[in-house]
Nucleic acid binder design. Structure first.
Lengths: 339, 339
DNA sequence: TATAACAATTCAAACGATTGCACAGTGAAT
DNA sequence: ATTCACTGTGCAATCGTTTGAATTGTTATA
């Protein structure tokens, strides 16, 4: 039966006209007789014709599709960012192809390759936590594929980027803890190959410097965003002769888990230890005490990155645009010693 | 410069041979001279040749891509399911194109249309909460596109499905609350056009019937998975002369929010009110008291659905397979009155 | 010496669309 | 009657692949 979809060729044959006319009629081309156009469109509807996008894109040399490479959708930040991406892209008539690197460099490479071979019109990328080589990214840039980094940007590469003020907000967060009377603030840092993680660490360090607090290496824990080591480094921290009285953690999950452990040890949050997380997940509002955190507008970052990308695609020139999306310190009970 | 990517035509011209030979050499076709093959592959590498997937797929009439339509990636269940999908698909050499319906029927229709026009080899679908018409789904089935529903299935349609035992687990969850001594269990139900929601409600109802508990309509709240009305229906429930002493909520977020409200009212969980959620989000372990919930193996469901789909694609025949992935009741403090 | 067998390659059509150019037909202006 | 302008349509090439059939050249066989 109609197992195979109908094509402009079918329409042409039935109507006894040429493919070109059909194509023009369907695309509302100016120089086709309105009567012919009507007949074509009618028959197209009747035959349930839909243009084959593969053919169309091959011919047109663009796909109206933007490729997205993110670490993981289970990471709510990226899930939300994808929302912003879709919103803007769809409104502009673009489709979105989402790939996850699962936080690995290997998959990130593969994803990029596939997207490029699929001839996406542009790329939105947030690199994996493993990404410490940039050849694949440089390659895409060399090929002049419009590309915008967002959130997990790579500073060294000549590409547009949408980033948040990790340094400043981390500085501010640390000062907040200091203002609450914390003297010994531990910092749970993320993977140091990520620009964001480095900035966050630097914000913390500089805030301590500004307030003339001696920096103690044993108060800085380098992690991988993974969770299996939380118990052990928390124990290590609290077995020190000088225990921390404040903790700034790289993400809320770590913060919550730490809080959990400390509460079990009989410590009072925030009295004994004030805690500040990162990402402002919904959960922050439901744990006890409620968790202070840093809010990044994920949706907005995705949307902004997409806007810049689309602009770049349409301008057809490679410009480098940098857009800052500001983060926000959300103070709740876990770090509020004063109220 | 090399603005445009190189093609088999370039390779052919440089080597002074025909495109066909190049194509065959690159695909390790049997009847090409090994010396020629070597030269072709060498030059291909040198020119950084990558086949244009659009052209390849157009010619081959398959895309090695499966299309996925889900409500939202911010819903962790679906984010995890996508993980399982990617895992199985990638291992089998397939790419995945993910579309979100944002829980709307309109977008679901659009997504489906785009995916079909892009000639994906198969479809994995979990319908939106709005989906109460099935024409678009039936359309895909009529076109003989291999299709597997997962989690949010549509029972009426002749397609494979991966589902979880919503009825049974809901029955079991209700019995659990009854065993804890609850006499007046309220049920926060999901949208009734969803098969899953109806099953969950029925499981609850039948469990009450089995235990000869009178069913009270005012104890059944119909929601939309949305959160803005939680406060108001909770108030309504607890202003009844006969207040509930147990709540079975359609998802953890609702459960947690309700718990929050009740705690503020000075009620003890689980003593005064036992609470059971759905989905077993990470948060359950961190709220106080910890939240009992129903765990659905999201990753496994995605993986299973993909396996079935791939089998169907390869067999090239339409079979209807149904696979049950069992859910699991996870009892924590919020519903444990005995320990 | 003609021919069959075989390997290696080329030719050309196909996938389904778009588009520059040519051309036929019509009516108006010269 | 010739030229011109203009509208509507068709031809054929093109995008980058794959692939059945035809062709070439070489060697073995009768």
């Amino acid at each position: 039966m109609s197992k195979s979809a109908s094509t402009i060729r079918d329409i042409a044959r039935i109507l006894g006209i040429s493919k070109s006319t059909v194509s023009r009629a369907l695309n509302n081309h100016y120089d086709v007789n309105s009567e012919t156009a009507r007949k074509v469109q009618e028959l197209a509807a009747q035959l349930d014709y839909h243009p084959n996008l593969l053919a169309q894109h091959l011919k047109q040399q663009r796909t109206n599709t933007i490729g997205v490479v993110i670490p993981e959708t289970v990471n709510r930040f990226f899930a939300k960012a994808v929302g912003g991406i879709q919103e803007v892209a769809n409104r502009a008539g673009y489709n979105v192809m989402i790939c996850q690197s699962n936080e690995t460099l290997d998959l990130e490479r593969n994803n990029l390759k596939t997207l490029m071979a699929s001839k996406v019109d542009g790329l939105l990328i947030s690199v994996s936590r493993e990404t410490d080589q940039y050849d694949h990214l440089q390659y895409a840039i060399d090929k002049e594929v419009p590309l915008v980094f967002f959130d997990r940007i790579v500073e060294e590469l000549m590409a547009s980027q949408v980033y948040s003020d990790n340094y400043e907000i981390s500085f501010q967060g640390t000062e907040h803890l200091l203002n609450q009377g914390c003297k010994r603030i531990a910092f749970i840092a993320g993977p140091q190959n990520l620009y964001n993680s480095r900035n966050r660490l630097n914000g913390y360090l500089d805030a301590l410097k500004k307030h003339n607090i001696t920096i103690s290496e044993s108060f800085i824990i380098y992690t991988n965003y993974q969770r299996n080591d939380i118990e052990s480094y928390t124990r290590a921290l609290f077995n020190l002769r000088e225990r921390p009285d404040g903790i700034f953690a790289i993400n809320d999950m770590a913060a919550i888990e730490i809080m959990h452990i400390l509460k079990k040890r009989g410590l009072n949050i925030p009295k004994d230890v004030a805690i500040l997380g990162f990402n402002n997940e919904d959960t922050c509002r439901f744990v006890e005490p409620t968790l202070s955190s840093i809010d990044h507008p994920a949706f907005d970052m995705g949307a902004a990155a997409t806007e810049i990308l689309l602009k770049q695609i349409h301008r057809d020139e490679i410009t480098q645009e940098k857009r800052l999306i500001k983060s926000r310190l959300v103070i709740r009970e876990s770090s509020n010693r004063i109220a």
